[in-house]
Amino acid sequence: MTVKNTHSHSTRLLLSLLAVNLAMTAGCASKANTPRYASASIGSACYAKALPTVGEGGLAWGDTLNAARQKSLTNCIRYAGRSGGTPSTCQVVLAECKH
Rank of each mutant, 00 (worst) to 15 (best):
S44P: 02
S44K: 15
A26K: 09
G81S: 12
S30T: 13
L18E: 02
K71I: 06
S88Y: 10
T64M: 02
W61S: 14
R36L: 14
G58Y: 02
L65S: 04
V54M: 12
D63Q: 11
L73C: 09
L94C: 05
A19L: 03
T86N: 15
L17S: 01
S88D: 15
G62N: 11
A23L: 04
C46W: 04
T74E: 00
L17T: 02
T89A: 03
N33R: 12
A40H: 14
N21A: 06
K98N: 12
E56H: 14
L17G: 06
S83L: 02
T2F: 11
G27E: 06
R12D: 00
G84H: 05
T53Q: 15
R36T: 02
A67H: 08
C97H: 01
G43N: 06
L51Y: 01
R78N: 08
K4C: 01
Y79N: 15
T25G: 06
T6P: 07
A50N: 07
G27I: 03
G27R: 15
T53G: 13
S41K: 13
Q91A: 15
K71S: 08
G43E: 05
H99G: 13
R78K: 13
T53D: 15
T89S: 15
C46L: 04
L59R: 08
P35A: 10
P52S: 12
C97V: 05
C46H: 10
V20F: 08
A26M: 03
A23K: 01
Y79S: 10
K71N: 08
Y79F: 15
N66M: 04
R12N: 04
L17A: 03
A23D: 03
L15M: 03
L65V: 08
G27H: 07
L65N: 07
T74G: 05
Y47K: 12
S8T: 00
N66D: 12
A67Y: 00
D63W: 09
L14F: 04
Y47I: 01
S72I: 13
G58M: 00
L73V: 12
M1Q: 06
L17V: 06
H9P: 01
R69S: 06
W61L: 15
